[in-house]
Simulated scan of single mutants.
Amino acid sequence: MSKYSIQEFINETKKTKEPKDSFDLETDRILDVQLAGNLWAKMGSMIAYIGDVKFEREGLMDHGADRMLKKAFTSEGSELMSATGKGQIYLSDQGKKITILDLQGEKITVNGNDLLAFQPSVNWDIHMMRKVAGMMSGGLFNIILEGQGKIAITTYYEPLTLLVEPGKPVMTDPSATVAWSGHLEPEFKTDMNYKTFLGRGSGESIQMKFEGEGFVIVQPCFEGTSNQ
């Protein structure tokens, strides 16, 4: 048989394993969800499914009046879709690498663009940022998740986790910042000078500053500059 035959292609690319859990990775860039109830996922992330599953766009009142007001008046919040039923769903986001995290009562804050899916048992809320800081960082919004259950986040290439220790603050570029310990409260640090306005600055004139104790997850690529 030719190594370029259709059958050979099917053999190399077909699904080869059964998921070990309700959230499992089919590949590093495809999330395999065994659905038996409901799930929240990023709008447009479904690439295929098997079974009896219904997808619906998130409604304004699906998560309560408080979050509805935050979304309506700040334009902050990733559009979500609900998946309901029983079957197998495959999710992906522009070919980004997927990481599954199993929350055991912890709290984590995730950049809204980097949240792929989460189980309904996880509590979540939209983090209100200072308006000026949000504008300067390119309109970033964050989602706080906590409780029990699995979440899936995405990164361009391999993520890097930096530990934040007392007296040793960590500074990151907002566009490269994916997630951080839920109890950390980042501040925006600006480094504006005449070189910045003359176009001779490094480009990193705005940073997020994390102080205290915890962790920060960054990706080796700026959000919006790669589809790898």
Rank of each mutant, 00 (worst) to 15 (best):
I108C: 03
K209S: 15
Y156W: 06
I217H: 04
S22N: 12
E223L: 15
D24S: 15
I153E: 06
E165K: 10
T196D: 01
P174S: 14
N227Y: 09
E211I: 09
T27D: 08
C221M: 09
K131C: 00
G167E: 09
D52V: 07
S82D: 03
Y194V: 03
Q34D: 13
F215C: 01
G77D: 05
E158T: 09
M128D: 04
Q148S: 13
G138C: 11
T27E: 05
C221F: 01
M129P: 00
G214R: 07
E79H: 05
S92K: 04
F118Q: 07
I89N: 02
Y157T: 03
A41I: 01
K15N: 03
P159T: 09
C221K: 13
G134Q: 13
K131W: 03
N111Q: 09
Y90N: 02
P174E: 08
A117M: 08
Q207R: 03
K131N: 10
P174M: 11
E204G: 01
V122N: 12
K71M: 11
I10S: 08
T196A: 01
D62Y: 02
T74V: 04
R57P: 12
M1H: 09
G87N: 05
F23K: 14
I98G: 03
V53S: 00
K17R: 12
G182R: 06
P120S: 03
A179Y: 10
S5P: 02
K168N: 15
I98R: 03
Y157L: 11
A41D: 05
W180C: 05
L160K: 09
